[in-house]
C-alpha cells in the first residue's frame, strides 16, 4: 500500500489551507504528521480519504487516483477523523457491525471480524453498552475498531490520542504499534513524544507547506545546534568554581562550563559543547585522573520539540 501525493493545493474560499504539498508513503511506514493547529494536517487527510477533492493536485493510493476510483480507494482505507465522531445512541456491537456492513464485508465473515475487533481493541467489557455511556478512552477504541474492521492496508488517524489521559495514550499507542506491522499508517498529532515513540517517519507541516521530512532521528540531527552535557561530580574541593570548572573547560570542544548547584561535596555542571562533538570519554578520564567521582553524566541533544518550534514559528 503506497500513497503518492502530488502538488496538492486546497483553498477554502480565498484561504489557502495547503500549498503545493508532495510526498510519498511506502508500505509499512508509520508516518507522523506534525504541525501547529491549522497547518493543513486535517485537510490533507480529508483529501486522501476522499472526503473532499483538492483544488489542484492528485492523490494516488496503490496507483489508483482517489478521485476517479473513489470507492475502491475508500475500501482500502480505515479512517479515524478528528474528534472521533460516533453515534452515541448505538451500542458498541451494533456500531461495529454497521461499519462492517458499510465496508461490504461478507455476511458470514462479519460475526468473526466483530469478535476479533472487540478482542483486539479491548472492548469486551463494554460491548453491550451504548457508545454515549463510554469514557473517552473506550470511545477512541471504538473509533479504532470501526476503522480497522475491514482490515484496511492504510490507516489514517487524525489525532488518535487527543483528549486521553497519559495511561490511555500509552494504551492506544501500543495498540497502534501492535497493529502497525505490515500496515501503512498516517497519523497526525501535536504531541511530539508520540511521534518519537511510534513513527518511523515525520512530516512537519507549517502554513500548508512541508517544512521537514525524515525519521525523528534524522530531523534531530539535521536541526541540531550546540549540545549540552550535564555532569554531577563528587569531589572534596573547597571551591568547585575555581578548582573544577577550569579543568573541565580545558577539554577540547567545550565552549563554556556552568556551575548549576553545589551541595556538600557534590557539584552539578552544565557543559556546552560544539555541535557533533562527544567528550564523555575525555570527561571520564579527567575525573579519574583528578580523583573525582562521576555520579551522573547525561548528554542532551536538540529535542524534536526544539526542531518543531524552530520550523513552525517564523
Amino acid at each position: 500500500m503506497s500513497i503518492t501525493v502530488r502538488n496538492l493545493t486546497k483553498y477554502y474560499g480565498e484561504q489557502k489551507a495547503i500549498d503545493d504539498i508532495s510526498f510519498e508513503v511506502k508500505t509499512g511506514e508509520i508516518l507522523g504528521f506534525l504541525g501547529p493547529n491549522g497547518a493543513g494536517k486535517t485537510t490533507t487527510m480529508k483529501i486522501i480519504t476522499c472526503y473532499m477533492p483538492p483544488t489542484s493536485g492528485t492523490v494516488e493510493v496503490d496507483g489508483l487516483n482517489n478521485f476517479d476510483h473513489s470507492l475502491e480507494v475508500r475500501r482500502k482505507i480505515g479512517y479515524l477523523p478528528e474528534m472521533n465522531p460516533l453515534y452515541l445512541d448505538m451500542n458498541v456491537l451494533d456500531y461495529i457491525e454497521y461499519s462492517a456492513q458499510l465496508h461490504g464485508l461478507d455476511k458470514r465473515a462479519i460475526p468473526h471480524r466483530i469478535k476479533e475487533m472487540v478482542h483486539v481493541c479491548g472492548l469486551e467489557e463494554v460491548r453491550h453498552k451504548d457508545i454515549g455511556e463510554l469514557s473517552k478512552g473506550y470511545r477512541q477504541r471504538v473509533g479504532l475498531a470501526q476503522a480497522m474492521i475491514h482490515e484496511p492496508d492504510l490507516l489514517i488517524l487524525d489525532e488518535p490520542t487527543s483528549g486521553l489521559d497519559p495511561n490511555q495514550i500509552v494504551e492506544i499507542r501500543n495498540l497502534i504499534k501492535q497493529l502497525g506491522r505490515a500496515k501503512t499508517f498516517i497519523l497526525s498529532t501535536h504531541i511530539l513524544s508520540e511521534v518519537q515513540a511510534t513513527c518511523s517517519r515525520v512530516l512537519i507541516i507549517n502554513e500548508g507547506k512541508i517544512v521537514a521530512d525524515g525519521s525523528p532521528q534524522q530531523l534531530q540531527q539535521e536541526f541540531q545546534g550546540a549540545e549540552t552535557l550535564t555532569l554531577e561530580i563528587k569531589a572534596i574541593v573547597e571551591n568547585p568554581l575555581e578548582q573544577i570548572s577550569p579543568k573541565l573547560r580545558g577539554i577540547g570542544s567545550v565552549n563554556s562550563v556552568e556551575l548549576l548547584s553545589q551541595k556538600d561535596s557534590i557539584s552539578q555542571f552544565e557543559l556546552h559543547i560544539e555541535k557533533g562533538a562527544d567528550i564523555r570519554e575525555a570527561v571520564f578520564q579527567l575525573a579519574v585522573s583528578e580523583g573525582w567521582v562521576v555520579l551522573e553524566m547525561h548528554r542532551k541533544s536538540t529535542s524534536l520539540e526544539e526542531v518543531f518550534h524552530k520550523l513552525t514559528t517564523s
Binding site: K46, T49, C50, Y51, L71, E72, R74, R75, I77, Y79, P81, M83, P85, L86, Y87, L88, S99, L102, H103, G104, Q146
Partner: peptide
C-alpha cells in the same frame, strides 16, 4: 453536526 457524516462519506458508499 456530530461529524459522523464525514465518517459515513469516507466509507465506500455513494
Amino acid at each position: 453536526k456530530s461529524g459522523t457524516l464525514e465518517l459515513l462519506t469516507t466509507k465506500p458508499v455513494r
